[in-house]
Amino acid sequence: MNYIYLLINLAVIFFPLVLSFDKKVHFFGKWKFVLPAILLTGIVFLIWDLLFVKLNVWSFNPDYITGFKLAGLPIEEILFFLTVPYACIFIYECLNAYFPANTLQKYSLALSNLFLGLCIAILFFGYSRWYTLINFGFLFLVLMYVEYVNVEFRFMYKFYRAYLVSLIPFYVVNGFLTAIPVVIYSDKEILGMRVGTIPFEDHFYLMSLLLMNVFLYEWFKGRAVK
């Protein structure tokens, strides 16, 4: 039972890793951009994770982790920031390769503005809760930067499509993590709205995690072209 979180991590990355050698996507050839994006994003989110453990925003059920820790975090939680971003960037690249036509292009700015407005509204009502405050505050800053400061390359229309598709495995993985539960949330630090057992905030945690990874991935690719 104490290998559950580790097995979930392995399941998340198994198919994306095996299929990375698909000739059309040629994902393994992009590892030199994927890995630094995951590393830099992982540092930010691991600091965030450590802070949340200290603030008792969430904790890890000892019955479902191996007990090996690094810097106070279960090794499985550290692996999470490798396996999930890898799988999500893989989804992003597969969609771009197999479905290059994307009708979201003309709606992406409107979607970003909608999410920016949602961030402001939720921060207004939920600023007293740590997870809500940091989660939506961080998403607001990243979205603002990507849409209104970054002018070198535009990718949000591709990002939103990948995010929507990533929600499918998200519900499976986070459903297990929160239903068993492997990760235990403090009700005092979340809004209290859930989709099944998944806190509402987790949907936007995924968005922040994926957005930062994809932005850095595209940035590293752009640097290589230049």
Rank of each mutant, 00 (worst) to 15 (best):
W58D: 09
I78V: 00
T103A: 14
L216V: 00
Y157A: 14
P100K: 02
A37N: 06
T132C: 12
N102D: 03
L7N: 12
G196N: 06
E201A: 00
R129W: 06
N213R: 09
L167S: 01
L6C: 00
I134Y: 05
I168N: 02
V18K: 12
M212I: 14
S186T: 06
L40A: 12
M156W: 08
P62D: 07
K54A: 05
G137V: 05
L46N: 11
A162W: 02
Q105V: 15
F33M: 03
P100I: 05
K32S: 07
Q105C: 15
G126N: 12
I91W: 05
C94F: 13
F140E: 11
K221S: 13
G72N: 06
K188S: 15
Y205K: 02
Y92K: 03
E218I: 07
M156D: 10
V195K: 04
N9F: 02
V195E: 06
A162V: 03
A37R: 05
F45S: 12
F124P: 07
A162H: 05
E147P: 11
L143M: 07
P199H: 03
Y3V: 11
I91T: 08
Y64A: 03
Y64Q: 01
V84Y: 10
Y145D: 14
C94W: 15
F124W: 02
I184R: 01
L141W: 04
L191T: 14
W130E: 10
Y92M: 02
I4A: 12
L6F: 01
L50V: 09
Y127S: 14
L109D: 08
E218Y: 03
P16F: 04
F155K: 07
I180F: 10
D49F: 05
L70R: 04
E152Y: 14
R194E: 13
Y163W: 14
Y127G: 09
F138M: 09
A162D: 02
E147H: 08
K30W: 11
G222H: 07
V183N: 13
E76R: 12
V149G: 06
V172Y: 12
E76K: 07
S166R: 13
L167G: 01
G117C: 01
F115V: 10
L19A: 13
F200T: 05
N135I: 13
H203A: 15
K106H: 15
Y205L: 12
G42N: 02
E77I: 02
P199E: 06
L177K: 05
S166P: 08
W219H: 11
N213G: 06
S108R: 11
P169S: 07
K221W: 09
V53N: 04
Y127V: 14
Y131L: 05
A11N: 01
F81I: 04
F220T: 04
V165S: 04
H203W: 09
A179M: 12
V182Q: 02
F138R: 00
V53F: 13
Y157K: 14
E218S: 04
K24C: 05
F99M: 14
F153S: 00
V44L: 14
Y92T: 04
P100N: 06
V12E: 11
Y131C: 06
